[in-house]
Write a protein that binds this DNA or RNA. Structure first.
Lengths: 196, 196, 196, 196
DNA sequence: CATGAATGAGCTTTCATTCAT
DNA sequence: GATGAATGAAAGCTCATTCAT
């Protein structure tokens, strides 16, 4: 199974098509579920012919991978940005920044995040995706190290999962007060790190 | 789509068949992934004819639901048992008990637990499964109420997700020290509840 | 494919079972349609195990054939009886008698009669059923001969179909006045035979 | 169950495929019977892949419906045409015209007509098919009204069934003299209508 | 004989992918 | 490049029939 995009979309038009496909794929995943996710549907929703879809994505799986990478790249960028702003702050302030970014990122597509997690299980390990995940964890880990947290890598990973879980829980039930959510995550993280 | 078991396995033999199917389904989910989960494969792994599978499960989805219910029923029983032992204890001691039970339950099939949690979103709402989830949350919620925790229902739900996330994170990377895992969860929970 | 009943039901109990199966088969055909007619369903509706059903009917088709034969035997008996009473009457009176019998026979299970008539084409030619059909036509044909009708065999056959068609038409739309139906059939038959 | 054609065959090629499928379906129905009618067989006989079949027909049933509609549309057109030519004629002449059309239509596929009648029993009520049936009856009914026949709707329906029955009877036995068939139907109809 | 669990061929339908236009 | 009709492997599911109990 091919999983790398068949060609890099260099031209303007190509980029639009790729973007439309990824958008449509996200919509299908969220609205119809992973089991109903199929290339014909995606192409239709994207307003693109199935032939064109295969021009840019060599397989169904490659579409999923691309979405995952896309989302992770964005998250990584945001996280790096937040980490940069952490310099000079205390740990509590730093965590706050990171949590806000996490909520903003996942919170804007909470259902998609969940479906992608399911999809990732089914995918052949895509190094690109894993590398991004590591990079994100690493970004957090560096912030933690600067405040002398033990096992910063493990802690970073745990914190990511922990935040994800609470964000998901919040968006699963109805109306979500983001302030409270932020506070809850922060408290859990601080508890985990034993900062009181 | 039918999702209720077609005939209740009353006889010994039937119970064996149903058990074999659920076991096989779990193996397929864990070893081959959600996308490869299909009735033919499950029947084959279970050593049962496809016809027999459909005698007991009216649809592919009903198998998933049954596993989820089975696992949740066991967890609920364990949780109720733990909750009973919580009477008279302080909050910290109670939480410790509950966390241990959660780790023991999910920890014995961590990968399956994860796939099921994610797969659930792809399923038509199965009231039985949801009810069990509520019942579990409720069991925790009652313990929390006895110690005057605010919003015990929300807290109970969040704690469940939080614990799941850290258990999953722990089992995803390799060797897991259960004591440390327990402590980490407990700390996060205590932080979430603002008990220091 | 086996089509003859596997054993003649000599004992009382056997007769009941056979009767129950034929009755159930008729109900299934009428209520669920030919496509939904299957041995498991018939056995269930009959309150008989699928094993027992196959004790008395070697195949699905044999059940259909048996119903057809059963109904035809009854019709044949009634027709013969009517034909006997025709002796000495004029043609018009004779036809009236036969038409009344036809209406009474088909009219008591019009929907089933229709399905069976159509289903018969799907069956391997069952000599028993065909023989009965011929016998019925023959009974009519003899009456016709006695009044010097040309081509009495063809006429007999045509009259049968003609009557069936009008009976079916009548029962397809709602409330049916049997007197009018009888008159209509009689008029058509008389027209066909050119008796005015 | 889907029953409406999935995509309208606008292009030349599509039309060919749809036509091939309907033709093949008719052949299978006639040569192998309703019970042996299945999509794989139809696709094979049509020389089309099973996938293509499902591009144009969303279900097995939709194929049946399409044949029924196709045949009825043709019959309706012929009937309307005949009815138009009836203007100014006397009743006897009008009936003759209609009977000729009926014989020509049904007579060209007598066995198929029968199987379709059986199939129709199993189909969810397809409004299109029913409407066509009504339209045909209505066409006849209008002709009858113009000659002051009582209950023209009922009479129209009865005549349709009556003619079908005699056509079927004629084609069921061997060689059929169409002139005699026409005369027989006409006589029966005239008898039914009490025109002598 | 009665039972009904078990079987598996075979049917319906879907969907990833290709390729002629 | 774009298109979308066509393909067919593969999945979901049914049901006629058998056979161990």
């Amino acid at each position: 199974m091919q999983t790398k995009p068949r060609k890099l979309p260099v031209q303007r038009r190509s980029k639009d098509v790729v973007e439309a496909i990824l958008l449509a794929a996200g919509r299908v995943l969220v609205e119809q579920g992973y089991a109903s996710f199929n290339t014909n549907r995606v192409a239709e929703v994207a307003g693109v012919s199935i032939g064109s879809l295969y021009q840019y994505f060599p397989s169904k799986e490659s579409i999923l991978m691309s979405i995952i990478e896309q989302k992770r790249e964005k998250l990584l960028a945001n996280m790096k940005n937040a980490a940069a702003q952490c310099v000079g702050r205390d740990l509590q302030g730093s965590l706050e920044l990171l949590v806000v970014v996490a909520i903003e990122s996942k919170g804007s597509w909470p259902r998609l995040a969940r479906v992608l997690a399911l999809a990732e299980h089914d995918l052949p390990i895509a190094q690109a995706g894993l590398d991004l995940k590591s990079a994100i964890a690493n970004t957090i880990s560096i912030v933690l190290s600067e405040h002398d947290i033990d096992h910063p890598e493990t802690a970073a990973r745990d914190i990511m999962y922990l935040a994800d879980a609470l964000i998901h829980a919040a968006y699963t039930s109805r109306p979500t007060d983001l302030k409270i959510l932020r506070m809850n995550i922060l408290n859990a993280v601080k508890g985990y790190l034993r900062i009181f």
